[in-house]
Design a protein around this nucleic acid. Structure first.
Lengths: 208, 208
DNA sequence: TAATTTATGTATTGACCGATACAAAATGGA
DNA sequence: TCCATTTTGTATCGGTCAATACATAAATTA
């Protein structure tokens, strides 16, 4: 882009990754600029020149999270042969992902800024949009299951998508509270064990 | 207690209720002392004389929440004839409770201070303890279901309690994101529809 | 070499945070 | 009436917040 001028002495990507990690751990509000400049290894003017503001840096960090640490959870969603396997895999990957390190545990998108009122609007809306995005992706996968024939006609994909994301979001709370991987796996297994009966039970339309 | 001295000009109970409402809406961090003194109708010295500190006021507010607005969710847990009805009722009451007002939506215990790192330790630990307390109560109810015979011997009550609280916590996130009561009710129905198969599936011990 | 451009480090900004100092006011008890 | 006790309102405390001013340093371009 700009070859002229003094070159920056830090890696923008590495600094962003450091910012992502501390935002994930402490949340948006509880992470101060002093925290950020310390872990990123730069001074406030460099941070603002490179990222614009604390909120913009956070949104970039969330985007990085979605492309890296948070991506694996959703990798098998479209490749799974059936909707049932896709959902069970999603929850098992969530259980693994949310407990892979001592800290931070749980999903950054769920835990890092849940307060809509009084907080930064752009930050809250950005996270909310990402949550909705994944729920829509899941719903689309369920609808494909209906098209593929592994889910019955008239399956309430909207309700089931909300149900599954609810479990997944709740797993983040449990993980932050210290739940073991085994406990989170058990939650995923509960969902899987009741799956067929659940699908049959929330099928609204009559089948022909 | 103390009859001498100038009497206070505000109701401690009413002030605490106002504090509870704004803490519930905005969370612990995003609620400032200026916010509190405004809605409570008193000055900072009166607040500190009556409640000690912002953190202690918050913990009292959470306790009030548990005794009032949050209590109805758990009212039928022990009176329900079966564990299945107890859980379904719990989730239906949650769906109603989390959407009874435009704001705040969702559970105060889940949403008002989820960040363990960087936040007030007493506040985070207090909320975490209340989440655990309810999960233990639910697990006890499930174990009673085994004793009563409406759940099979060897039912993994620990796993199912984690599964159900996970759904309930996730419903709070959905509620805060604007989900309708109908959507939350559909989540509760998903859990109910798969219940029997789920219980049978996560039964670990052999039955004699 | 001189001019331009960009990044750096230091120091600081005004605003807001949670929490108090202080004196006046209002009660009960002696 | 006078003292002890407690609450009140005003004004403010030191600290931290996110964000910048400013001068210097290091690169490219002419």
């Amino acid at each position: 882009m700009s070859s002229r001028g003094r070159p920056r002495t830090f890696s923008r990507d590495e600094a962003l990754r450091s910012a992502m990690e501390i935002f994930w751990d402490k949340g948006f509000d509880n992470t101060s600029l002093a925290d950020l400049t310390r872990v990123m290894g730069l001074n406030p003017p460099s941070l603002y020149a490179a990222f614009g503001s604390k909120a913009k840096l956070f949104l970039e960090a969330v985007d990085l999270y979605g492309r890296t640490d948070g991506a694996g959870i959703w990798e098998f969603l479209d490749d799974a042969p059936t909707a049932r396997e896709a959902v069970h895999d999603l929850l098992k990957r969530s259980a693994e992902n949310f407990t892979q390190w001592a800290e931070p545990r749980g999903c950054m998108v769920v835990l890092s800024a849940p307060q809509m009122e009084g907080g930064d609007t752009a930050v809250c809306d950005g996270l909310k949009a990402r949550r909705l995005e994944k729920q829509v992706a899941l719903q689309s996968r369920l609808e494909r299951g209906v098209a593929d024939g592994d889910l019955p006609e008239g399956t309430d994909c909207d309700a089931i998508a909300a149900y599954v994301t609810s479990i997944q979001h709740g797993m983040s709370i449990h993980a932050r509270d210290g739940a073991s991987r085994q406990t989170l796996m058990a939650i995923a297994d509960c969902c899987a064990a009741g799956w067929d009966a659940m699908v049959a039970g929330v099928t609204t339309k009559a089948q022909f």
